[in-house]
Amino acid sequence: MTTASLLRTVVALGAVGLLALTGCSGGAAPVGGAAPSAPLSLLDRAPVASEAEIAASPTAAAIRERGQLLIGGELDLPLMSQRNPITGETVGFDATLGKLLAKYLIGEPNLKVVRSISETREAVLQTGTVDAVISTYTITPERARKISFAGPYLVSGQAIATLSTENRISSPADLAGKKVVAVSGTTSVDAIKRSAPGVQLSTFGAATECIQALEAGSAVAYVHDMTLLAGTAQLNDKIQIVSEPFTDESYGIGIRHGDESFKEFVNDWLVKIQQSGLWGENWTETLGQVVPGDPPKPPPIGSVPGS
């Protein structure tokens, strides 16, 4: 599934709410015998690193000793990382990756998500506030001079969203001279400036603030990674995606700069969950709730500059 295919699917589906699928039996209850056991969940079947694998990375050993993985992430990104206000659980593709990594490191998905917006991701890694950042973190050579990246683990691209009543914008060229919003500290900012010279760009610290500005009429367009816009459009019928993705964005897992043993540890784990099918199951249970068909092929580890 390409990013363009995902975009077309989101536009076609519009704002369809996520369905909580539950099993239902219309037949009689079985008589006698033990009830069939429930299938093991994705996390139940997730691998756990061996003692030798843990010992090869001082960072991994410290995390196992602590008994908790500290992840930098966001809490308001539908389909990627969003906290359920009732249960307090963070769900989505990135959120599940964090749980899978915690299970691999500790033996159980014990983690704490430290909210890290785009402008603070490098800082929380450099200060040791978190062990890793999993948060639609596009790999770039500039960022790789400050922190290290494992992966990539997913490929997305920048796209344009507008209010559903807007019909004059369909490409980056249409943004020239217009008021546009983006999340500060993201690759969206440079992508807009390159693709739409003369744009009147305003930035905000969070995606929710960009949506609020768009709905308030302070801007006519919002540019962000397509996977994030997909979640927004899927939950908000006031928002539509109007362009094909016009960049390639490879997401990586941020770790402290120069920690090569931990980078190798995380990359080995990514290969394991890809080969076992857990990566694809994660896609199906999250982004796949919007995108029909089989999961896309994961990008090769180390395949982009900075990874």
Rank of each mutant, 00 (worst) to 15 (best):
A206I: 01
S118R: 03
T59I: 10
T203P: 13
P47M: 12
R45D: 13
A20H: 03
G72W: 03
Q275C: 05
L105K: 05
L97K: 06
L201G: 02
F204E: 12
S57V: 09
I255L: 13
A46S: 12
T22F: 05
T22Q: 06
F265M: 13
L278M: 05
R145T: 10
P298K: 07
P85E: 04
A46K: 12
S170L: 00
I169M: 10
G280V: 08
Y104A: 09
G17H: 09
S116A: 10
L7G: 08
G107A: 02
D268S: 15
P78E: 11
P245C: 01
S116E: 04
A206E: 02
R143H: 09
G33D: 14
S243L: 00
G185D: 04
Y153Q: 14
D248P: 06
N282G: 06
V155R: 14
R256W: 03
S164Y: 10
K263A: 14
E166L: 10
L70I: 11
N110M: 08
C24W: 06
Q275S: 13
S164I: 14
A28K: 07
R8K: 03
V290E: 01
G73I: 08
P109G: 14
A230R: 08
D268M: 11
G293H: 09
T186P: 07
N267D: 15
V189N: 12
S307W: 04
G17C: 09
E122R: 13
I301E: 00
S195K: 09
S243E: 04
I86C: 00
T3Y: 01
A216R: 03
S156E: 15
K178G: 15
A49K: 11
L270Q: 12
V133L: 09
E281S: 00
Y104D: 06
T138W: 02
A182E: 07
P292T: 00
E53H: 13
T203L: 07
S41P: 02
S116Q: 00
T120P: 00
T96D: 07
G32R: 00
A46P: 06
G302M: 04
V133T: 06
G254C: 14
V10N: 01
A132C: 14
S135D: 09
A28D: 10
K112W: 05
V199M: 04
A207G: 14
D131C: 07
K297F: 02
E260Y: 06
L105A: 11
I63M: 15
E285Y: 12
A15M: 10
D131I: 12
R45L: 13
G92R: 05
G252F: 05
I241K: 06
P172C: 01
V48S: 09
V181D: 11
G217W: 05
G17P: 07
P197V: 08
L201F: 00
K238V: 04
S5D: 11
A61D: 11
N267C: 03
T90E: 07
K99N: 13
R143D: 08
I117K: 12
G157W: 09
P78S: 13
K238E: 08
S303E: 00
G67K: 07
T22M: 05
Y251C: 11
F93K: 08
I301P: 02
